[in-house]
């Protein structure tokens, strides 16, 4: 189980390859990659702020809950911070479980949490200026499915 926050870009394919290696009892691995959208040119940069230390602990708490709930063999969460350009990966989640249903559902739960409740503050910067972003209604109802 690990949570990694980093300013530097990452390669989701390389992360998945490393995560998948050497597993003989894991029947299912699901991975999700979130990409920064350009929003039809309205966003030139996404700026993501975390509270170093606190953010990892809070995400780790949900990771532990998901691990217990879905009997996961392993989880990896990598999240970008700082300025992110459209087209770059923001978040990578991989789950490993004995069977596919648990791996799918755990990845789904973790992403709903990360998109709506994780301790980040997100700003969109574009030609018309900058604005702080809050979770959408859909992000909130998606996350509430797991409560």
């Amino acid at each position: 189980m690990s949570v990694i926050l980093q300013d530097a870009p990452f390669d989701p394919g390389a992360l998945l390859l490393t995560f998948s290696r050497g597993r003989e009892e894991t029947g299912a691995i699901v991975s999700f990659t979130g990409i920064a959208r350009a929003e039809a040119g309205r966003t030139t940069t996404l700026e993501l702020e975390a509270y170093s230390g606190f953010t990892e602990i809070e995400i780790g708490r949900i990771e532990a809950q998901a691990t217990a709930r879905f009997s996961l063999h392993d989880v990896l969460i990598v999240h970008r911070t700082g300025p992110i350009a459209p087209g770059e990966a923001i978040v990578f989640v991989a789950t490993a479980a004995g069977h596919r249903r648990e791996a799918f559902e755990a990845a789904d739960l973790l992403m709903d949490y990360l998109k709506s409740r994780a301790p980040f503050w997100k700003k969109e910067v574009g030609p018309d200026g900058e604005r702080w972003i809050e979770p959408s209604d859909r992000d909130r109802t998606d996350a509430a499915r797991w409560d």
């Binding site: 979130g34 993501l48 509270y51 606190f54 999240h79 923001i90 978040v91 949490y113 990360l114 998109k115 709506s116 409740r117 994780a118 301790p119 980040f120 503050w121 997100k122 702080w132 972003i133 809050e134 979770p135 992000d139």
Partner: peptide, 10 residues
């Protein structure tokens, strides 16, 4: 001491 406005998620 950290003041944390509503969190946006990532």
């Amino acid at each position: 001491v950290a003041f944390l406005p509503p969190m946006s998620g990532g």
